[in-house]
């Protein structure tokens, strides 16, 4: 049997909202350590890797490792029925072909239960090496979302140039061109508003902005986003999921023909 309970069910709903545009169905790997998921988009350009550690749940029980094929589209629809302060329990009974989502209101007066049929999915797994990136930009996730949205107006691609002083996002297309430059914060009251850059080597990489905008669907999970970059290496765009894990998106850069 598998059972995991989250007092703040909305966190789980935000995780699903963060994933479902990039991947519509995925296999969840459940073990004693927690829940993990790895999936690529259909064009094999981007990949998402999710980790939710067991100690982040109020209660967590996983008697044996399980691979659960789940339609994220359907799960998202079910989770929309959850109240914003509801507690969420995810359960898979032994020998069952369904996942049960139970939602309980804070005053314990309302209790809803939904079952979703599990799917048999072919899952492909990529070995992502630990990488020492040349540059890690940390910035407010709302700012990153806004920049990606704005850049998409100008063109299909965004070039991210990072130096020790700042990071520049630029796009050009038929209508024109533009760029936004952010300097490293020197003095901020709140850490979540800061832009910080760890840099070993300056980088300039170009990415499809459409994918960056899909990654930004996970921005409500975290005040800050980490963008890890090296030349000729996929971008890693990371949002923390509270203290319990993270969503990491990987995106292959565009290359010169």
């Amino acid at each position: 049997m598998f059972e995991a309970r989250l007092a703040q069910g909305s966190i789980f709903a935000k995780v699903i909202e963060g994933l479902r545009e990039l991947v519509t169905e995925a296999t969840w790997e459940c073990s004693g350590n927690g829940i993990t998921l790895q999936a690529m988009d259909s064009s094999h350009v981007a990949l998402v890797s999710l980790v939710l550690r067991s100690d982040g749940f109020e209660t967590y029980r996983c008697d044996r490792n399980m691979s659960l094929g789940i339609s994220l589209t359907s799960m998202s629809k079910v989770l929309k029925m959850m109240g914003k302060d509801d507690t969420l329990t995810i359960r898979v009974n032994d020998d069952s072909d369904a996942i049960v989502l139970s939602m309980e209101s804070q005053n314990q007066e309302e209790f809803a239960e939904y079952e979703l049929r599990l799917m048999d999915l072919d899952s492909e797994h990529l070995g992502i090496p630990d990488t020492d990136y040349s540059c890690v930009v940390k910035m407010p996730s709302t700012k990153f979302s806004r920049i990606c949205r704005d850049m998409a107006i100008l063109g299909d691609s965004v070039t991210i140039c990072s130096t020790k002083d700042g990071v520049k996002f630029g796009a050009k297309g038929d209508v024109g061109q533009g760029s936004i430059r952010l300097n490293q914060s020197t003095n901020v009251d709140k850490e979540e508003d800061a832009v910080s850059i760890e840099l070993r080597e300056a980088v300039a990489l170009t990415f499809a902005v459409r994918y960056l905008n899909m990654f930004c669907k996970a921005a409500p999970l975290s005040n800050q986003v980490n963008l890890s970059m090296s030349e000729d290496t996929p971008l890693m765009c990371e949002f923390k999921v509270g203290d319990m894990g993270h969503i990491r998106f990987y995106l292959a850069p565009k290359i010169e023909d």
Partner: peptide
């Protein structure tokens, strides 16, 4: 011209 590369080129499939 720029073209979109795929992740296969960077990460080997297990």
């Amino acid at each position: 011209r720029l073209r979109q590369s795929q992740l296969w080129m960077y990460y080997k499939r297990i």
